[in-house]
């Protein structure tokens, strides 16, 4: 499809240090986003084997909740430090509310389905996503916020240091991307500590390797499921709150569908039940996204949806070559 000459051109284009540095940096920022949006999903999928179709709408709800806190209190928190502090308050609020919501959802809706075939959980969460999305749309219309377009008021609460492009060694570095990378690393570290240093982390790791054995050894699986589902949903909401500031994603009702499929891809490519796999897959998808975006923006390939196409190609390619995912164990999840 691409003539040889342009291949050489492309190679030369990426050898330019400025271009290479920018692509790598963009890739890192995108990787952080992909890891964040997949983190909640992978926790739930890893322990419970429930592929949560409501993941996307929960992300959108997180984005709007975070935006609500920011817009309401933005006037009283001015300056860079004040806004960023307020943002962390918003994250805590979103996490608390959505964790409670997720826990309630598990107890009332998901729990009755454990003795049914696993596909019923997909069906149920798919139904939940329809309901949540319509409820969200209704509430937004009630408050005269246009649901299908980006919520600009929330984006406007970005502090100056984040909106600006900084000059670092002659390279233009966006404040937002730095912020995303820092938060991505922080959240990854947080989840990692949760998995390796807490009781529930131990349950998750045990449960994802051999659920029945874990139960036989006295792990209260019911309680662990509720906590894990709650925490997973909470993290999902936090990811949504982070996306609210990014104009490429932004808070809108469509955020749900935009997030859902990439998150699936990252979780499946990484492998069931391994957070390490999710991180590696997120980084892979992030870099491929950055690289293919650069191919398009520098006019080497004239197909605007190249990044989107490649994300799904990665999914199909992985499932063909290594169905259990990059770090997945063959036995797990084979129903």
């Amino acid at each position: 499809m691409i003539p040889l000459v342009s291949l050489v051109d492309a190679a030369l284009h990426f050898l330019d240090p400025a271009v290479l540095a920018r692509v790598l940096f963009d890739g890192l920022a995108k990787a952080s986003i992909y890891v964040m949006i997949a983190a909640g999903l992978t926790l739930i999928f890893g322990l419970m084997g429930v592929l949560n179709f409501a993941h996307g709408s929960l992300t959108a709800i997180g984005a709007y909740l975070g935006g609500l806190v920011m817009v309401t209190f933005a006037a009283s928190a001015s300056g860079n430090v004040g806004r960023i502090a307020l943002f962390f308050v918003a994250i805590v609020v979103v996490f608390a509310l959505l964790t409670a919501f997720g826990g309630a959802m598990e107890v009332s809706l998901i729990r009755p389905l454990y003795d049914r075939p696993p596909l019923y959980q997909i069906l149920l969460t798919f139904g939940i996503t329809l309901v949540l999305e319509e409820l969200l749309r209704m509430i937004l219309l009630f408050y005269d916020i246009q649901p299908s377009t980006d919520w600009l008021a929330a984006q406007g609460t970005r502090p100056e240091v984040i909106s600006k492009t900084h000059d670092v060694f002659g390279l233009g570095v966006e404040g937002l991307e730095v912020f995303q990378i820092l938060l991505g690393v922080a959240i990854t570290a947080g989840v990692w500590l949760f998995l390796t240093r807490t009781r529930y982390g131990l349950y998750i790791r045990a449960g994802s390797e051999d659920g029945e054995m874990a139960q036989a050894l006295g792990v209260n699986v019911h309680q662990a499921f509720t906590v894990v589902f709650g925490v997973g949903v909470g993290i999902t909401g936090v990811a949504g709150a982070l996306l609210m500031w990014d104009s490429a994603w932004a808070a809108s009702i469509n955020l749900g569908a935009e997030v859902l499929l990439p998150a699936f891809v990252v979780v499946i490519v990484g492998g069931l039940g391994t957070f390490r796999g999710t991180v590696v897959a997120g980084v892979l998808v992030g870099f491929v996204d950055a690289f293919t975006t650069e191919l398009f923006t520098s006019d080497i390939v004239g197909f605007s949806a190249l990044p989107e196409l490649f994300i799904f190609l990665i999914l199909v390619g992985t499932l063909v070559l290594r169905p259990q995912g990059l770090f997945g164990v063959e036995e797990v999840g084979g129903h």
């Binding site: 084997g49 592929l51 696993p118 596909l119 997909i122 499929l261 699936f264 891809v265 499946i268 196409l309 799904f312 190609l313 999914l315 199909v316 499932l319 169905p323 999840g333 084979g334 129903h335």
Partner: peptide, 15 residues
């Protein structure tokens, strides 16, 4: 099988 089958067909359709 299972969830993985659903996902790979979804992947093809999205491509």
């Amino acid at each position: 099988t299972g969830v993985y089958f659903a996902m790979i067909t979804l992947g093809f359709a999205q491509i």
